[in-house]
């Protein structure tokens, strides 16, 4: 069933509305903007499914804004012989060409009936004129910002389970985020796996069973543990980092950077501004420097240079080389 034309017109008169990707409703024009591809994908999927639910004969067309030719949008939006509803999904607006900009601006002034246009802009300033025009027209805007904080990711997990009417214990959600939280698509896939498999509330044991022993670690985590002399923790997080796909080369680079900072703050006259370090980095390095003797520092820098050569092809086993360096650094710090 189609909504009467009057309701469409009144919807378009509302002022610009930023809606969450979970609640976006179909509208003549929807703008999905922001760098997080996965959320944009979910928002577009939701619009498509909602429309399909209302109109099974919906015709979906993909449009690439970077290779658009004049008149394409009008052609797609003009009524067809069978009068079915149309959903046009325009992507890569961040690389849109001038033809697309002109045509879409014209289209915004008089959107066609029975046509839903979803615009996906990946971020950046290209086509700002169009974005502003869309916002001014009152079309819903879905803002897809990457989730950086663990709290956001936890919220995401909770929402996923809530939508699916499943329960997850807070501790289990926490474990899930620390196991696969670095990439949102992975996290979402893990959620949907657990939702479809689990029969009752998801507990920490269930997460442990599926993703047990997998902890995402970065080079920084490894370096922090090693520099402060916590050998066991450093080696464990090194193993986790290597197992979850972190390359040995950046790990060595982070270790080298940390040692460099410690060496620099060792000089009495050092201050954060001259060294080009942020104040918190400087304080951190000062604290770490208390554990380090000059001789140990010199020896570790030499070992790291050797390790860097080995992880870049001189040695046979890069993982062994970086493990050796981490052990050496962790045992050289004075505890």
């Amino acid at each position: 069933m189609n909504p009467p034309p009057g309701s469409r017109a009144s919807a378009a008169k509302k002022s610009a509305a930023t809606v969450s990707w979970r609640d976006v409703e179909p509208a003549p024009v929807v703008l999905v903007s922001g760098p997080e591809e996965y959320l944009a994908h979910r928002a577009k999927e939701r619009v498509r499914n909602l429309l399909r639910g209302k109109q099974p004969d919906l015709e979906v067309t993909q449009l690439d804004a970077s290779s658009y030719t004049t008149g394409g949008l009008t052609m797609l939006a003009s009524p067809s012989l069978f009068g079915e509803a149309k959903l046009i999904e325009a992507s890569s607006l961040a690389q849109m060409n001038d033809e697309f900009l002109a045509d879409t601006l014209a289209y915004l002034a008089s959107p066609a009936d029975e046509v839903w246009l979803v615009l996906h802009h990946g971020g950046g300033t290209r086509g700002k004129k169009l974005l502003d025009a869309v916002k001014a027209s009152g079309a819903p805007v879905v803002d897809c910002q990457p989730m950086k904080k663990d709290a956001d990711k936890l919220d995401f997990v909770r929402q996923e389970f809530k939508t699916a009417r499943r329960a997850i214990e807070p501790a289990a959600a926490q474990a899930l985020v620390s196991a696969v939280g670095s990439s949102l698509p992975d996290l979402a896939a893990a959620c949907s796996q657990l939702i479809s498999d689990a029969e009752s509330a998801v507990t920490e044991e269930t997460v442990e069973k599926y993703y047990g022993g997998r902890v995402e670690a970065t080079g920084f985590k490894v370096a922090d543990a090693a520099i402060s002399g916590r050998g066991a923790a450093a080696l464990a997080s090194l193993r986790h980092a290597l197992a979850t796909g972190v390359d040995p080369v950046p790990i060595v680079a982070v270790l080298a950077m940390k040692l460099r900072q410690i060496a620099k703050v060792k000089s009495a006259a050092a201050n954060a501004r001259d060294l080009g370090m942020a104040p918190w980095q400087f304080d951190q390095a000062r604290r770490d420097a208390r554990l380090w003797e000059s001789e140990a520092l010199a020896r570790c820098i030499q070992v790291l240079a050797e390790t860097d050569a080995q992880v870049k092809g001189e040695g046979r086993d890069p993982e062994y080389a970086v493990e050796r360096a981490v052990t050496m650094i962790a045992t050289s710090a004075r505890r």
Binding site: R260, I301, L304, A305, K312, G313
Partner: peptide, 11 residues
């Protein structure tokens, strides 16, 4: 052999 220049010089 492509070692980071700063690190090689520091060592």
């Amino acid at each position: 052999t492509n070692v980071a220049p700063v690190l090689a010089m520091e060592a």
